[in-house]
Design a protein around this nucleic acid. Structure first.
Lengths: 197, 197, 197, 197
DNA sequence: TATGAATGAGCGTTCATTCAT
DNA sequence: AATGAATGAACGCTCATTCAT
């Protein structure tokens, strides 16, 4: 069992990072199942055996990658929403957070989306995956209590909102467009209308 | 090259259908890449070699499957919208059409979604995939002209709407829920609010 | 799980036999652990994948081989000892049986000897391996009761006798000699002296 | 080429010894082929690279180990047989020597036996392996000349005797028994009967 | 001298595809 | 038309060996 977890976060582990970076590229270009370890090794610029110094298996690698980026996304999206805002203002923080993450790390966003349900995700990955949803549902429930968000199952509303954002990113990726600020603001208004009471 | 194109559309080709049906089951249970041809042959109740009488390769099979279901979905969703309706009424037809397809063929809906970007899709599949989007964009553009749908890029609005629906279906699947009529009506209102001027 | 056990014993399965024959050659020339599957496939004249139609794994193959030959050896050595003989006469049947088997199937004899304790042998192999010993111990116990065989632990006496025979075969193999009839008769007398009361 | 041959025999080379000791343990627990160098390094408490300061390769290591223990066994078994004894008395020295070595170094005894024929043994190992046999054959030939040992090929008689002893040790090991003094004395008599004229 | 991270050839095994029946 | 035994390239992974530190 290795994962170099004892190494401090500031330690330089360039090969481990090169492997994770190459994995993110390949798993979002193709998929996990259709990326081979030799291919990954080559892209990372390491020997095939080297991957196994850092990760126990292909599955362990994809889980480490998933957790790393899901945590980053959760922090970026829901990490620093100030208290004392109206639900409408909070929504803009959420939407802008999603936009920031998807713009800065488009491959990571698509990787997380594509691999969300995958059979090879372990308990830690599933827990990491649930955190952002949990926070969003809390936000929606609170907004409903304050009369700002429409009635209905918070899970359904969240699914609609996150689905809409995902649709936006995929569409932009497919057509080679970027998510510009105009799109951000238009969509912020439109999706808030979906949510508003 | 075979695809039985000489066989008339109404001819009964039970093995071909059995193969496509088994493929849909397996590709949505696991994934395309992690389904093997012998496995597929067994599920379809045919010999492994028989698949190659109907499809040139595994890739050709997944393309045929994609086109079959994308066509079906396009027809179900946008096939019979009566003329002379308001944009709001038309939207309900669209949304109900999506719901009908996703409810009657949940595996097909998820299969189409999952494989939308896949590298192995050929030109015909991509064309089939674009048809529904094209019709939706036409609808949105028309609604904007009539002042019923909010301003903004039709592509973006469509991405938001289809993304929202996809989010709904995936969420239901993940939590083992079905898309009931209440959810249908609640979401119809909410998503129309997203779209409405 | 395959092992073609449903196939009748008289069915011709030439590839399966070719694989087992090649495995016997290689496992006795080198060892199980240092024989590779590609090497084995080549020696057997089949593709590497073909081995896996007949055996689930390398371990399953070595177990099938062990059981096949241990059964054959048990039958040859202890299968047809007539009733009503003196212990001395019975001993000659045993010794001649060992000699027959080791002469007709020298590689099999060495393979069985070398792999007797191996960690990868399964329960069925261990059971097959114990049968001949059990019969030999019964013979010794009976000879002791009749006063023809010397006192002492039957297990120890059997270990000495079978060990002596094994030493003979290994020595012959090492020096490229065959076990001729003179050696057979000399050793029959000598080993009976070991056993006799 | 290294083997520290410049180092005097009495020099303390604790790492080399630690490596050889760990190798004996592991090669008798599993086998040579299924013991990895990193595993061996860890058991010996040295770095993986360190092994290569003392031994050129895995093969060189197993040869060094073989020679070390074969020499020790030869000395223990045939090193101090006093002159002027009868063949019967000498035999007891031989048998007791084997028993002493196998009791004090059971892993070494089994290692030597298991690797006797191994393809990777070099000329020096084969020479070391032949020494004890040569002395035993000289003893048998002398005993035959004096009329104390039965007629027949000395090689065959030696193979029977050493084989019998090996069978005894393996049987004891398999059943978790030790070679006690009673067994020693019983077997001394029995095996002398095999040898006696 | 000693280390252990790094390598890449080679392992056991799978699977898309072919072809004799 | 249909089969499924057979293939061999390619998979995930291991390990003897090297070499920068």
């Amino acid at each position: 069992m290795n994962d170099h977890s004892a190494v401090s976060a500031t330690a330089v582990t360039p090969k481990r990072d090169a492997i994770l970076d190459a994995a993110l590229e390949l798993f979002s270009e193709r998929t996990f199942a259709s990326t081979s370890m030799p291919e990954l090794a080559q892209r990372a610029g390491v020997g095939a055996g080297t991957i196994y110094r850092y990760f126990d298996s292909k599955d362990a690698l994809v889980n480490a990658l998933f957790q790393r980026w899901k945590t980053e996304m959760t922090d970026t999206v829901s990490g620093d929403i100030p208290a004392g805002l109206t639900p409408r203002e909070q929504f803009t923080h959420w939407w802008r957070g999603l936009w920031t993450f998807a713009t800065e790390h488009p491959a990571a966003f698509l990787f997380l989306e594509t691999h969300h349900h995958a059979a090879y995700l372990d308990a830690a990955s599933r827990r990491a995956g649930a955190e952002l949803s949990d926070r969003a549902i809390t936000y929606i429930r609170d907004g409903q209590r304050r009369g700002a968000i429409r009635k209905g199952s918070p899970e359904v509303l969240m699914a609609l909102v996150l689905g809409a954002f995902t649709g936006l990113v995929k569409s932009a990726t497919e057509h080679g467009r970027v998510l510009n600020r105009t799109t951000l603001e238009t969509s912020d208004d439109a999706v808030w209308a979906l949510l508003a009471a």
